[in-house]
Amino acid sequence: MLPRFWRKIKYRYDLVGSYCENCQSFFYPPRNLCPHCRRRSKIKEVPFNGKGKVLSYTVVHDAPEEYKDEKPYVIALIELENGVKVLSQLVCDPKEVEIGMEVKKAFRKYGEDGASGIIYYGTKFVPASHF
């Protein structure tokens, strides 16, 4: 997992996605090839602003082993201001979340590779009303 995680650090630590200059589309996670333009793709990396709204969500009660500490937690499908959809954990009281809620990015721990392994950090979201 270590090299696999490290390779994408840039895109996990912040919302760095792809933009196709040929068709003006944004993508997250980043892509090397635009699904609309393929061979004519002109992909470049762009940081996305971390604001969006909740399109849909769930509260996870039955969590995988490595996420048991955080349950119940919210996983939301979030639409960013540039129209890109991002699936992310939304850190908040599960009673607080609703469709349409404004959210913003936050830097959090995803987990760790055991007590002596590396720590995985990345982007999650929080309600925009949180500081």
Binding site: S56, Y57, T58, V60, D62, A63, P64, Y67, E70, Y73, I75, A76, L77, L87, S88, Q89, I99, Y110, G122, K124
Partner: peptide
Amino acid sequence: VGATLPALYAIIAK
């Protein structure tokens, strides 16, 4: 990011 198979179907269901 912590999504499970039920979580994704739940997002669709919601």
